[in-house]
Design a protein around this nucleic acid. Structure first.
Lengths: 148, 148
DNA sequence: TTTCATGCAAAGGTTTTGCATACGC
DNA sequence: GCGTATGCAAAACCTTTGCATGAAA
């Protein structure tokens, strides 16, 4: 599991400066590990500790951390980027998006490895990453019926 | 394969009007069937036949045609929506996005059906759609080596 | 003639950028 | 002290919306 010290080492190793803003932003992700935070979400969280942090700094930091593969950039199709911790060593996971309540459920899975190999062979495409989203109805929303 | 007449019937059947703008936009997709067009792409194409067509009309028509499932709305992560013909009856396909040259390759596949069933069973999520993108390097870019 | 669609321009929302200042190293 | 990072505001970008006009049915 990734710690704040790991991130500090990563930043130092690449000659990036370890600013309080970067630390606080990183902490936000470590404390709400399972969330999918937008830039605005992050800004709202970190403003509590560092009142005058700029939204632009949040955007720049999220870009940087995604570049360093500390965070994953996600796109749930709601017009803004979202970010999650890139838990090194964990299994790959996909996202189930409920079309009714908007909840996002994570689903652990390795079955895509097989599909990647099939594609690589058939299409000669060298795959380095993928993103898979399922749209449907979560358990709770199915039970509520289709009205309302 | 979908024709312009099919689309006309679909529009009439739902009490939508068959305007020249809607026809011309639809024609653009029928003539460049394998492309993934953004709203601006479509606007540039249709302006040639109908010089004063507004960009807002293009957006509204693309929304409508996606709603009617005549088009699929795609998101390649480049900050704009893209659209393709929804070829009824064809196999589902996914997109391979080259990280170097930006080309988009389509890949036909049924293997995801199995994965959907596994997920439905494990998570009790009722899946109605999915989107799968692979990022990597296309054959041509692999051959060019990793420099430049 | 009634209703819906269009074009234009303005507004909306997210993200990026320019620049002077501040700060990590 | 040097060079990068920050905050602020403005700009950029895609998309949506309001409204008067125009056209389909």
């Amino acid at each position: 599991m990734l710690t704040l010290d790991d991130v500090k080492d990563i930043l130092r190793g690449k000659e990036y400066k370890l600013t309080p803003q970067r630390q606080i932003i990183m902490q936000a992700f470590l404390e709400v590990a399972d969330m999918h935070l937008s830039a605005e979400d992050v800004h709202n969280i970190v403003k509590q500790q560092h009142t005058d942090i700029g939204l632009a700094t949040v955007y720049r930091t999220l870009d940087l951390l995604a570049e360093l593969e500390v965070l994953n950039r996600l796109d749930f199709g709601d017009g803004r980027s979202r970010y999650e911790l890139n838990k090194a060593g964990s299994h790959q996971h996909h996202h189930l998006l409920c079309l009714r309540c908007g909840s996002v459920i994570e689903f652990e899975d390795d079955l895509l490895d097989e599909l990647e190999m099939v594609i690589a062979k058939k299409s000669k495409f060298q795959i380095v990453d993928h993103q898979l989203k399922f749209y449907g109805y979560c358990n709770a929303c199915q039970e509520q019926g289709s009205d309302e």
